[in-house]
Design a protein around this nucleic acid. Sequence first.
DNA 1: AAGTGGTCTAGACCACTAT
DNA 2: TAGTGGTCTAGACCACTTT
Lengths: 255, 255
Amino acid sequence: MDNAKGGSAAQTNDHIDRQSAHPVYAQLADAIRQQISEGVYRPGDQLPSEAMLVRTYHVSPMTVRRAINLLADQEVVSTAQGRGTFVKQVELATAAFDLRGIKGLFSSDTATTIKLLDGRIIRADGRTARKLQVSQGDTVIYIRRLIEVDGEPAFYHRGYLVYDPTRPVVESELEVTELRCLFEGRGSSLIKRGELTVEASIMNEEEARILKISLPSPAMLLEHIFYDFNDRPVSWGIIICHAKRLRLHTEVGLK
Amino acid sequence: MDNAKGGSAAQTNDHIDRQSAHPVYAQLADAIRQQISEGVYRPGDQLPSEAMLVRTYHVSPMTVRRAINLLADQEVVSTAQGRGTFVKQVELATAAFDLRGIKGLFSSDTATTIKLLDGRIIRADGRTARKLQVSQGDTVIYIRRLIEVDGEPAFYHRGYLVYDPTRPVVESELEVTELRCLFEGRGSSLIKRGELTVEASIMNEEEARILKISLPSPAMLLEHIFYDFNDRPVSWGIIICHAKRLRLHTEVGLK
DNA sequence: AAGTGGTCTAGACCACTAT
DNA sequence: TAGTGGTCTAGACCACTTT
């Protein structure tokens, strides 16, 4: 408005498109992220104050706030009350690996089948009893599954479920429950939370035979345990696969 | 206000404390999360509408919005324009493992030392040349480090840095740069982004000797590559450790 | 005292979904 | 058409940091 005179100062960066389907706060966040990526603002640098951004981009304080919050959530900037907003340096510790790769195996058009190798009632040994918070010797359901991808054995799953006489388990259920559904987010609504641990391992003879892999072979081991809404364990188990099947990859910093 | 009559209907959940240092939006998010955790709202259930929450908790629409956004970011609920807000089911694929455990080794009071085993200029082999985007045979800096925790060998790091004649590397720098700093978030401000890959492996003879581990041994392998603000590779390397040193753990769902 | 981020209001308007 | 989430405004007030 007030730059009628001295026209040459036209900025190239205050182009917020009000007509766009892309929200203003996201456009603003993108604009700032872009400038960081281009090196306009370097790690450690202070960003323009929120008031300044309000004037520069002609948006309301709340909108600027939201854009900054977005960048802060993404670890791109950090804010300090009373001091300012600063560009963050790359921090390895915040790198996060996810299991979206595995999800693809189930949800997409990949030919993934789950074979039930074994499913029977056994008595819990010490380890299983501890994990499922039952007494040693109590009956639990033991299942072994083989997940095949494109006709090749890929994942070998051994799991233990608490045996609930009031809710008998149908065998056909076992084949799909708890794995495909959990990865797709259609998990049983009985499950409130779970814990996952990933660890490197060396495949043993049985695992190698089932997965048709020659020894010795590095393996990735995924242990999982799920709890219901009473915080009681529901199931515990281990998924094992060849190291190459479960490579965790992530990126830090800006693209 | 309008519940002066029929007093018995006093809710136990509309207790937003305006005096608290805990922001209202966070208190509201906590209250909703708590009710989900208690089973008041089950996975798949629809939450009260935002307008309803405004009336129930006597806060402004923006504040409700922010609370819901928080829960949506945390994968606790999902929103659908025109339909409503719904409680999410546990989804394994969104589980994210981070490296905060490693950070603790460096930043805390743990006795962690970094020993430079080797640091010299070599000619890049095919693999290194490809990773660092230089020509095969070009000079690169090769370093080997041993990270000891509480006097015990813990991580073995082999890295390659592009050799920049304009910015000679001091040996003492090598001992700390790029590792401690990167984990603590005080990484060189020259680095814009990086890629990390975690993979299971079996320790080879050299690695086992340096880490003082008997073979055979499962190992976790962390490959990393960093880029500068010109999107040119700066360094590439591999950190290897015993499987038990790098166990990735995470939780899904609600506590 | 001046400048910074942090929260919150009380609406308005829009886009989408159901009926 | 009514109800839902989604965005945005134009401030106000507060807490904190720096000078």
